[in-house]
């Protein structure tokens, strides 16, 4: 910067070109040095320069789904009373039937609900949800309030599907730590998801709300 200052009086345009050029080269070189590519190319590049760096401090109740869920052990549901009241009775849920079906890697514990780089640890399976079964499963939107307040989280939802294909009960099995985010997710699944008619079924749906 000192160099730029002294040159400034003589030819600012040249100084500018040089400074910006140097910055670009620096970005390029250091970018290459920064190491291997860490992420799948599933992200947007269309944002420009400028947003001041802002650290999201962890929320009061960080979401930390217990690893036990991923290991399919019985777990007292951690959903808030509000959510529980709004959904199906959880007592009958046979959580123990999960071992054969749940891959251990399917839902990793979140270190911090608000860590902006949570994406780095997202498992490869965390891609756009395309179920291999007939039905209609639109993605829920990211709530505007949650986006604005920097709220992120992961939750696990248990859906009972009636013979008609409509969800007969939708319950939070593992809270995101934000009752309102949980409520948003279960409301959406209950209202928007439909399966093909058939025998009554039940599904565990992990949802990951993640800010970039």
């Amino acid at each position: 910067m000192a160099a730029a200052l002294s040159i400034a009086s003589q030819d600012r345009l040249c100084a500018w070109a040089a400074a910006l050029g140097a910055a670009t080269i620096l970005v390029c070189v250091l970018g290459e040095l920064a190491g291997p590519v860490r992420l799948p190319a599933e992200h947007d590049h269309d944002h420009g320069a400028g947003a001041p760096v802002q650290y999201f401090t962890p929320p009061a109740k960080p979401a930390s789904p217990s690893p036990a869920i991923a290991e399919a052990s019985p777990q007292v549901p951690t959903a808030s009373p509000e959510v529980v009241a709004a959904t199906a009775p959880l007592a009958v849920v046979p959580v123990t039937a999960m071992p054969a079906l749940v891959p251990v890697t399917a839902l990793r514990p979140v270190k911090s609900a608000a860590a902006p780089r949570a994406a780095l640890s997202a498992p490869p399976s965390a891609e756009r949800f395309v179920p291999d079964m007939p039905g209609d499963f639109p993605d829920p939107p990211y709530p505007r309030w949650a986006r604005q307040q920097g709220v992120q989280g992961r939750l696990l939802v248990l859906v009972d599907v009636a013979a008609s294909g409509a969800p007969s009960s939708v319950a939070v099995r593992e809270s995101s730590g934000h009752p309102s985010l949980d409520q948003h997710a279960i409301d959406w699944l209950r209202q928007q998801w439909t399966w093909a008619p058939g025998a009554p079924r039940r599904f565990l749906v992990p949802l990951i709300f993640e800010l970039q």
Binding site: A97, P103, S125, R128, F129, P140, L204, I208, Q212
Partner: peptide
């Protein structure tokens, strides 16, 4: 038994 689906990733 509940069948576990792939995670739904909602990116904001």
């Amino acid at each position: 038994a509940p069948q576990k689906l792939k995670p739904v990733l909602i990116k904001g």
